[in-house]
């Protein structure tokens, strides 16, 4: 079973700030404990369901220029470009 360190490592991977590691671990741990019920299902030989779509089945990718008015937030847009925060 995944442990305390695994939960906190997953939170770091997802860039989730953890205010109270004990609460997160307890609730996520309870969920993971519940998922262990799958162990008793006995479906080891079950076939996996994989919907398949060939590349020929996909629609053409198409660039659709945005034709609406410029977004209202002047802090985020300048000269048609999205402004990102300055970061080192």
């Amino acid at each position: 079973m995944a442990g305390h360190d695994d939960v906190l490592r997953a939170a770091r991977l997802m860039r989730i700030r953890v205010a109270d590691p004990g609460v997160l671990e307890s609730k996520v741990g309870a969920m993971l404990d519940y998922f262990e019920t799958l162990d008793s299902a006995g479906y080891a030989d079950e076939e996996m369901v994989h919907p398949e779509a060939g590349v020929d089945d996909l629609r053409e990718d198409e660039h659709v220029p945005y034709g609406g008015p410029p977004p209202a937030d002047p802090d985020r847009f300048r000269d048609g470009y999205l402004r990102a925060p300055r970061m080192p």
Binding site: V7, A11, L13, I16, L24
Partner: peptide
């Protein structure tokens, strides 16, 4: 946040 953590882990 919890579901995202689970989504990274499982």
């Amino acid at each position: 946040a919890r579901r995202m953590v689970l989504g990274a882990l499982v």
